[in-house]
C-alpha cells in the first residue's frame, strides 16, 4: 500500500472530524452541550448532496449544508437555552430527528452521482519533500478551509474580545450578564455556528471525501467520535485538530491491514471474509473510548475540565444547580 496516499486520505477524512469537533467546541465553550452532532452531520450530508444534485453547483450544496446544520442548531438552541429543556435529551432527540429526516430526504439518492467540490494543489508548498505531496497536493478546497479554521478558531476563542465573551458565558454566565453581555443571545449564536460547522462536516463527506449517499452509514458514528474528540482535546481547537488528523490517519492503516496477505510471515487473520476482520473494525470505536479515558484523566489531574456552566441553562437571578 502507498503510505503517502493513505496519509493524504487521512488528512481529508480528518477534516470531517475537525469541522464537527470545532463546531462542538464553540457550542460547549458557550455552555451548551449539543449531542446532536451525528444528526446535524447527516442532514448536512444529505442536504449538501441533494441540493448539489438539483442545482449542479456544489457550492450551493455547501451553502445548503450550512443552512440545515444551522437550523438544527437553532432548534437545539431555542429548546435548551430559551425553553431550558435538558441539553442531553434535546441533543439525543436532534440525532434521532436528523437521522430519520436525512433517511427520508435521502430516499432515492443512493447510487446517484453529483458534482464534487474542486481539489487544488498549492503551487510551492506541494513541492516540500514528503509533507508537501501528502498535505498540499490534490486536496479538496474544504481541506484547506480546515487548515485555516483551526488557528482562526483558536485565536478567536483565546485572544479576541468576542472570544472572551464566549468563554465568559460558558464559565460564569451570571458574571457575564452583570457585565452587560447577552448570555442567551451569545449562546444561541454559537450553537447555531456549531450546527453550521456540523452541517459542513456532513457535506465534506458527501461532496469531497467519500462522495455519494449511503443512508445513515454515510456518517456512521463520526458525529459521536467528534464529541469524544472534544473531551480528548479538552475544548481546545488545536488539540482537536491534532486528534482529528491522527485518528483519521491511523484508521486507514488499521483497516489497510485487511489488504495484506501475510503479517510477519504468518497468514493474516484479518483478511476480509475471515471473521477476525471484525476485531479490526472495532478498533476505531475502542480507540475513542481510550482517548476519552485519557482526556478525562488529564482533565481531572490538571483541574482543567469542561466549561463550568456546560449543560446548565442560565436564568437571571437564579443560581445553577
Amino acid at each position: 500500500m502507498d503510505l503517502g496516499l493513505i496519509a493524504a486520505a487521512g488528512i481529508a477524512t480528518g477534516t470531517v472530524l475537525l469541522f464537527a469537533a470545532i463546531g462542538e467546541i464553540f457550542a460547549e465553550r458557550a455552555g451548551v452541550l449539543n449531542l446532536g452532532v451525528e444528526g446535524m452531520m447527516l442532514m448536512g450530508a444529505v442536504g449538501g448532496f441533494s441540493v448539489t444534485g438539483a442545482t449542479g453547483n456544489p457550492w450551493i450544496g455547501v451553502a445548503a449544508a450550512l443552512l440545515v446544520g444551522g437550523l438544527l442548531g437553532l432548534l437545539h438552541g431555542v429548546v435548551t437555552i430559551h425553553l431550558r429543556a435538558d441539553q442531553v435529551v434535546s441533543g439525543l432527540a436532534l440525532t434521532f430527528l436528523g437521522t430519520g429526516l436525512a433517511r427520508v430526504l435521502g430516499e432515492g439518492l443512493t447510487n446517484t452521482n453529483v458534482e464534487r467540490l474542486p481539489a487544488l494543489t498549492i503551487p510551492l508548498l506541494a513541492d516540500i519533500p514528503i509533507v508537501g505531496p501528502i498535505v498540499f497536493r490534490d486536496q479538496s478546497v474544504l481541506v484547506y478551509l480546515g487548515f485555516v479554521l483551526v488557528p482562526a478558531a483558536w485565536f478567536w476563542i483565546e485572544r479576541t474580545r468576542p472570544g472572551l465573551h464566549l468563554r465568559a458565558v460558558g464559565e460564569a454566565p451570571a458574571a457575564a450578564d452583570a457585565q452587560g453581555i447577552g448570555v442567551h443571545r451569545l449562546r444561541l449564536a454559537y450553537v447555531v455556528f456549531g450546527g453550521m460547522l456540523a452541517g459542513l462536516a456532513g457535506a465534506t463527506i458527501t461532496l469531497a471525501v467519500a462522495p455519494g449517499w449511503f443512508g445513515d452509514q454515510t456518517v456512521n458514528g463520526r458525529g459521536w467520535i467528534a464529541i469524544g474528540l472534544v473531551i480528548f482535546a479538552r475544548w481546545n481547537p488545536i488539540r482537536a485538530a491534532v486528534g482529528a488528523y491522527l485518528f483519521a490517519a491511523i484508521s486507514p492503516f488499521i483497516l489497510g491491514l485487511q489488504g495484506v496477505p501475510t503479517i510477519l510471515g504468518a497468514q493474516n487473520p484479518f483478511l476480509p471474509g475471515r471473521s477476525a476482520t471484525f476485531f479490526l473494525e472495532m478498533l476505531p470505536y475502542l480507540f475513542v473510548i481510550v482517548v476519552v479515558i485519557l482526556g478525562s484523566r488529564a482533565a481531572a489531574r490538571r483541574r482543567i475540565g469542561a466549561p463550568a456552566a456546560l449543560g446548565v441553562p442560565y436564568v437571571r437571578g437564579e443560581r445553577g444547580h
Partner: peptide, 19 residues
C-alpha cells in the same frame, strides 16, 4: 415508504415531548 419515516417520527416525538 420512505423507509426513514418511523425513525423520523420517533425523533419528532422526543422533541415535542421535551418541549
Amino acid at each position: 415508504q420512505p423507509s426513514g419515516v418511523p425513525s423520523m417520527i420517533q425523533g419528532i416525538i422526543l422533541f415535542t415531548l421535551i418541549v
